[in-house]
Write a protein that binds this DNA or RNA. Structure first.
Lengths: 266, 266
DNA sequence: CGTTATTTGTGCGTATGTATT
DNA sequence: AAATACATACGCACAAATAAC
């Protein structure tokens, strides 16, 4: 047999043929990719393990080989598998465990899994030429807030955020950002992603060393001028609209930044 | 007309029909992706500009619409374009200019575009339990070297590298790594990529702040203990074989690390 | 050594769905 | 309502790499 193929000269595209009990539909290839991703992250496919072939998956999932290929394209792009012609598809080493899976925007959003944030300066209107410039605004008006991030009640990071006025308005009713001292596990970027019409797809980071400014040092309980890791992040939508500038100072004694990089073409 | 399509019931795959004067072939969709990528990086498509439609590209490049789609899939994965159903395909903002295009392994290889490296400690066999452990070796034997990276003859980074013995052997005949004081524009990772059988596809980074160790400080001409940006990089092949550990100390006054992050699924 | 079977890679045609204009 | 444009899905043919024989 050449491909898979029962007969069906032209597949009706229908929501996606196969079963789908609860959740929303998604597409066939995404569903398959989700399944495989789960297997990879859960170590059901250990490091280096060979995954089923395209033909096998096409049979068991009752989809065409092309659909299987489409699913694998995403997994390759995510660095979860690598493929070798004539040999097969293999689970990429090191699934997750103690290592941050991959430097992605979603990672930044889920930073809060085992940390909490405590608001130290509530969201309010402000004039800031520099921040407005970096956000690409015409005027100098921004909205800004500041908070600490804690791990086991110990502060390890101070973050200040600046938002375009319109974007800040959408967060006006969020108590986590308006009541001084509020403790929560939200992230600003997570809140924005739920409220903005366009999803946040890009983040630009700049990482360097800085001397802790007075106020930051006071809140982090270190001496002013103590060397800290400074990370600036500028978030944007796919269309390039900049929606948040965040400047964080991390205590290096308690934090190191990890990323995993992949190669471009394949 | 539904798709593109002249007739040709079953396309002969042939090297790829169209023109190709000099270089090696590649595939049709990669060639198209290369062309579009060049146009995007060169600002021929400015920020937010709308690119030709799938149908248009299929016509002008004499390929099927599927092939155009395949090319766009890569560009989307690279974050160079974003697509909106019913509207079109758009150049992602901020092509390159003063900003490092994207945090990828290739970036690290081409770090040397406007910098030079000067060998301060030639490649030689050595015992190092820690490095061997991080490289996943059974024995404690490694090969190691150290060098400075210069910009305008000013050192801004000190790097030490450790290699598994077998990997180090492949670099034995490279004068840039064996003659003390040698000045060049190579990168260790670039040299390895040319010589190893398997390509290097992964790099894992850890970034933190450190006090400059004595020897590093002396070579960077700063006081010992000066706060510096420390970046550890562990390179591996797709199969997970670790081939190089590099520990770099950057003078933060002259260097900041920039990365651009993209969102996972789309 | 070549032959063959397996497995992924490339290219194309087609049909249909959905979002936007 | 219609046209445009991207998204999904399927099928097919052949190429190229790999491994087993």
């Amino acid at each position: 047999m050449t491909d898979s193929g029962t007969a069906a000269p032209a597949g009706a595209a229908a929501p996606a043929g196969a079963a789908r009990a609860a959740g929303r539909a998604r597409s066939a290839y995404r569903g398959l990719a989700d399944d495989l991703r789960a297997g990879l992250l859960s170590r059901r496919y250990p490091d280096g393990a060979r995954l089923p072939t395209e033909a096998e998956l096409a049979r068991t999932y009752q989809v065409s080989r092309q659909t299987v290929r489409r699913a694998f394209q995403d997994l390759v792009a995510e660095g979860l598998v690598h493929r070798v012609p004539g040999r097969g598809t293999f689970a990429a080493p090191r699934g997750s465990r103690y290592l941050r899976q991959f430097g992605s925007v979603d990672d930044l959003m889920s930073l809060s899994v085992d940390t909490t944030m405590r608001l130290s300066s509530p969201l309010r209107r402000q004039i800031d030429v520099d921040a407005a410039g970096r956000l690409g605004l015409d005027s100098d008006v921004v909205q800004s807030a500041a908070f600490l991030r804690l791990h086991d009640d110990v502060p390890f990071c101070h973050t200040a955020v600046w938002l375009p006025p319109g974007v800040g308005e959408t967060l006006r009713s969020v108590p986590e950002l308006t009541e001084c001292g509020a403790v929560s596990t939200v992230t600003v970027i997570g809140l924005l992603d739920e409220r903005l019409p366009a999803p946040i797809t890009d983040a630009e980071q700049s990482i360097t060393v800085a001397a802790a400014p007075g106020r930051v040092a006071a809140e982090l309980r270190c001496e002013p001028g103590h060397p800290v890791l400074r990370i600036d992040r500028l978030y944007a939508t796919a269309a390039g609209e900049r929606v948040e500038l965040a400047v964080s100072h991390f205590l290096p004694e308690q934090y190191s930044y990890r990323v995993r990089l992949r190669r471009g073409p394949l």
